[in-house]
Each structure stands twice: as structure tokens, then as C-alpha cells.
Design a binder for these strands. Structure first.
Lengths: 338, 338
DNA sequence: TTGTATGCGTTATCAT
DNA sequence: ATGATAACGCATACAA
């Protein structure tokens, strides 16, 4: 004979402890509003019965969930992991929980997940980048759910954001590359559609070229999804050109790692035969050989600030600011002068 | 003048469409039980009002959430990312959503998250490994929430599981290492307490040694958290021994990557001066130089099967099986004979 | 300090 | 095919 699994409720606790449900609720939420003696008794029965508050019921009654939702493009590479970790640590310290979902870089899926997280009662949202359907912003505004946009800097947007200027960062790196005497730049970019970070990075290269009286239109560019193997394939394709590029600038470190690997397979020496640059400065950048010259992004700081900003918006009901972080160039071995 | 954000409910839709809430609910959930004409009218008002069902209310009334929870030790490295991706794809295809949280390898935090996910109404749980407090298993049993244990094989456990025999896998690799003539094995292991995978892997090495009439007790072992830098530090420490180890076997690829990097910094050539092995066969394993000899784990398959198993347990109410997967040794350049 | 009573937005049962 | 209504488990305004 097995007894049917009986899930204890507030009522059960109240009955056993000989108090009202309100008192039990107060013991759990506002301890100071109940006498030490009854609190002790109540907590003991909570323990005995193995009572766990039903989250959904609590959310309905309180209209708050202490839950933040985050939608990132992917968990499959480390770009967002570190920032998200800091984000979640900061939230946790403030008594919030984090719900993460990934959109696989698909805008429709992101839109769907925004609705799902709001439907679950998320008090606020962390989104990556600024490029999405206006309908999503309208939806959030209508529901009164604050959101902060990370990994991007959007001077023109009305939303709170924490990030950096992808375009300026890549322009800075390109300036360095040009100053080192490189004449033929080729680019492996992430998919630009729906991704303002990728777009900004490519634009940065183009701007630098124009500022140096070079024509950006003749520059070879391959657009491909952020995966190592894609970086390798694109690199090999770019290397068919005659004359060869002197440097291949990549939209992120993952693509650059693929490029470096393929270079070795092709018998090309980096940086003597060709230089390669990345973006993000994830751990991978210092593991590949030669180590990657890249743009360092303060991921953890970004996550922390995003959390602080979001909590402020939720609790103080303020509109949220646009916080811009500084990035820096990390010179390693994959780039040298010609 | 801004109008207060009015969140449309089922009632609102019902009123505007001129039907009862029951009918609206049926339109959303059991379309066949409502006439085509009213359905059309209802769906139109749903659209117009921008109605989204309240998840928490739905969960309370229906006592099902179509949500699965997963608790992984970390998102910071790629070990679990790929398996989780496949897990979630399979779930999605079956109409389930996935909630992920990470325990940072802390047992108490995992216990807390189990309660949190169950409190949120998760229909089932994915957990990593089998080593946790009995109280957690009791809790799940009492609540009637099915769980499948992944990344582990637990012949003695009563729980459903999908995984491989960590011990046997490492024993197999060690057999290979010994057959290649290695005489002095050193080990960089993950933290063993609370981690049956790490424990099994170390035990596998010891078993192989004993089977070859070697004394496992004299083997140098450093236990450290699964981070690249820790692998580097441990490697350097192990290399102080006189005579030096001929091979350093690592508990996973991340530790091995750190070891390989430090070897280069120390001016040691891998594998001529010392061999290094990993475990998991994540992408990193083929990126480091020399590429890593390691144990290939079918992460995606594991995720997919775990999802199938869990859905079965939920929908068919069957107890769940123990599925064991095969692993294989991947010979690359970081290991050679002496 | 404690208790009573209402409402949160659904689903599901039972009528009609 | 559709409607009325009772749960679901909790927080909270209001009373005592």
C-alpha cells in the first residue's frame, strides 16, 4: 500500500500549527510581523510537513515573482556565459531568481520567449542587442515589464541598455591594423541580419578604411554563423584570393579560432603569412596558438551592471539609463605588422 | 496622458467576444470542442486585445505546466551545453518548455533549486549525476515528480538514468596508456566530493593500474575545480616531481587544456616530454595544440534520450529505465608511447 | 499580534 | 456547442 503523495499546503500548516493561513504566510514573508513564539511553532510544522510554497499561487496572489528572465542567443559558446553568471550572482544577492532561455539567434523564437517569460510573471527582462520587432517593445511597455538591453550601445534607443559601441571598438582595432601596415583586409563576419552587434563590428571596419582613404567596397567579406567550423571554412575561402589578404579580421573569437586552426592545416603560419584578429576576448582567445589579438569586452561587469540597472527599474520604477562601458584592444601573437 | 497598462485576461476576451470564459479557454486548448464560427470570432479578439494566457493561473488550474527543469553544475564551460541543447530540442518538439538553472557545483544550491523548480510546477527534472542527499530523492518521490539522472550510470540506483560508465571509460583509456609503455602516471582530477563522475574517473585509473599489478597508492593526484587555470597550476605542480610523470591524465578536457598551455609555457613539449589526456571530447579538445587524446562522450545523444525518457515517465507514468551509452577513445596528438 | 475574507486568472466539472 | 461555477494555493486589506 502506498499512500497517495499528499502535497502540504498553507492550509495544512495552519491547521496543524493551530493558526490562520495569514499567520503562516506572514511567518514566511514578513517574519517581524509575528510573535517569536508562534513563529517558532509555525516554522517547526513547516519543517515537519515538508511544506514548500507553491510558486504559481504565490505569483498570482502577490503579482510579483522575484524572477528575472534572460534571453540569450545561444548557450553553446562562452560569449554570454560569463556575463550571465555575474548577472545572476548580482540578482541572487538581491533576492531575485533568474530564468534563462536561448533563442538560437532566431528573432521569432526570441519574440515567443519574451511573451512566455512575461506570461510566467517575470518582473523584468534581460535582452541581448537592440534589433527586434517593435511589437516586442510595445508588448513589454504595455505590460509594464522593464527590460535592459545588453551587449549593445544604442544612443538612439529609448530603452535602458548596458553595453559598448561595437562599431567604435572595431574601428579602433582596424585603425591599429592599418597603422601596422596592413594593406589587404578580409573579414569573416557573423550573420548581420537581426544582429546589431555583428552589423556594428563590420561597419567599424568600413569606417576605419574610409577614414584612411581606402575603399571599403572592395574588401572581401564572408558572413557566417558564429561557429568554429564556419570560421575555418570562411578562412579557407578568403585565402583563395590573389593576392592573399594580409590580415583576416573576424567578428568574434570563435570564428577567429576556426580561422587559426584552418591556417595551420593549410600550412600557413600565423602571423607571418597572415594575421588574424578576434572579438570578445573569451577564454578561447588565449588558448589558441598563436594567442589571439582581440577586443576585450568586460563581460562580467556588463552582467553586474545590467542586473543593478534592472533591479532599480523594477523597485524604484525609474526608466533606466543607458550605461556605456569601455573596451580595450588586447595585443597577442596573432597580429603583427607587415 | 498615458493610460494605465491594462493587461487583458480571459474575462476580457470573453466579454468582448460575447462568449463565456469557458469557451475562450476551449478555443485556446481544445479547439475541436468549439464551433468553427465562434472559434474564429474568439481568436480575432484574442489577437485584437493582445491577450496572452497567464502561465501561473493556468498552472494552478491545470496542475500541469508542460515545463521541465534542468539543473546543471555550470554553464561556464561547454561540457553540458551541447547535451542540454539536444535535450531542449527534443522537449520542444514534444511541446515542453525547459527551465535551466546552474548549481555552481554546490550540493546545497542544487537541493534548493530542486525545490524551487518543483515549486514552480515542473512536470519533471533533469539532474546531473547520482550523488546527492537522499532527502532530495525523497522530496521528488513524495511530490510525484519524475527525474532522470544524466551523465552517469548508476547500476545500483533506483532512479532513471542516461549515461555511461565513467569508471569503465577511464579504465579503458588507462589501459591504452599503459599499453603504450607509460610508467609514471599523474592525475589532475575534478573535485570528487559530491561528484560521482569525477570519482568514477579517478577510480577507473586506479583499477587499471591494479589490473596491471601497479600500485595506485603511489600515483600523484591533484584534485581541483574544473577550470583551465587550475589545470595549468596543477600541471606545473605535478611536473616538479623527480622523476617527472610520463603522462598526465586529466579529469576533463578543460583541465587538460590548461595543462597543455602550461606545458608550453614551461618549455615542455607535448607529447615528447610528457603526454596529456582529457575526457569529454568537447570542441576545445580539437582546438588546443597538440590536439587532445580524450574520451568521446555522446553528449547530444545523451540529451535526446534523457528527454525521451523523461517525457515517457511523465506521460505514460512508467518508472523510467536506465539507459547506458557507449563511449570511445579518441586518439589525437597529445598522447604517444614512451 | 492574529484572524477573516476576498481576489488573482485559469481549467474543468457539470449543467443546459 | 456553450455557459455557470467551483476549485487551485497563496497574499493582503481590513477587522478584531
Amino acid at each position: 500500500m502506498t499512500t497517495a503523495p499528499t502535497i502540504p499546503t498553507l492550509d495544512d500548516v495552519a491547521r496543524v500549527a493551530g493558526v490562520s493561513t495569514a499567520t503562516v504566510s506572514r511567518c514566511l514573508n514578513e517574519q517581524q510581523k509575528v510573535s517569536a513564539k508562534t513563529r517558532e511553532r509555525v516554522m517547526k510544522t513547516v519543517e515537519e510537513l515538508g511544506y514548500t510554497p507553491n510558486f504559481n499561487a504565490r505569483a498570482m496572489a502577490a503579482k510579483r515573482t522575484q524572477t528575472i528572465g534572460a534571453i540569450i542567443p545561444t548557450m553553446e559558446n562562452a560569449i554570454f556565459a560569463r556575463g550571465l553568471q555575474a548577472f545572476q550572482e548580482t540578482l541572487h544577492a538581491a533576492g531575485y531568481n533568474l530564468l534563462v532561455s536561448s533563442s538560437a539567434y532566431q528573432p521569432e523564437m526570441e519574440a515567443e520567449q519574451i511573451r512566455a517569460l512575461v506570461a510566467r510573471g517575470a518582473d523584468g527582462l534581460l535582452l541581448i542587442g537592440s534589433e527586434r520587432a517593435q511589437a516586442s517593445y510595445d508588448f513589454l511597455a504595455r505590460r509594464g515589464v522593464p527590460a535592459v538591453l545588453a551587449w549593445t550601445s544604442t544612443p538612439d534607443a529609448v530603452n535602458a541598455s548596458v553595453g559598448f559601441d561595437n562599431c567604435a571598438a572595431m574601428r579602433m582595432l582596424t585603425d591599429r591594423v592599418l597603422a601596422m601596415g596592413h594593406s589587404r583586409i578580409a573579414v569573416i563576419s557573423g550573420i548581420i541580419k537581426g544582429n546589431d552587434r555583428a552589423e556594428g563590428r563590420l561597419r567599424g571596419i568600413q569606417q576605419s578604411l574610409m577614414a584612411h582613404d581606402r575603399n571599403p567596397d572592395t574588401m572581401p567579406v564572408i558572413e557566417t554563423a558564429y561557429e568554429i567550423e564556419n570560421g575555418a571554412i570562411a578562412f579557407e575561402a578568403l585565402m583563395q584570393a590573389e593576392p592573399r589578404p594580409t590580415v583576416v579580421m573576424c567578428g568574434n573569437d570563435v570564428l577567429a579560432a576556426g580561422a587559426i586552426n584552418r591556417a595551420r592545416q593549410l600550412g600557413l603560419h600565423v602571423p607571418d603569412d597572415v594575421s588574424i584578429t578576434g572579438f570578445d576576448d573569451i577564454e578561447l582567445a588565449s588558448i589558441v596558438l598563436p594567442a589571439l589579438t582581440t577586443v576585450h569586452v568586460p563581460h562580467r561587469e556588463m552582467g553586474r551592471i545590467a542586473a543593478e540597472e534592472l533591479i532599480n527599474m523594477i523597485e524604484k520604477r525609474n526608466p533606466g539609463a543607458r550605461r556605456k562601458l569601455e573596451v580595450s584592444i588586447v595585443m597577442r601573437d596573432s597580429l603583427e605588422g607587415v
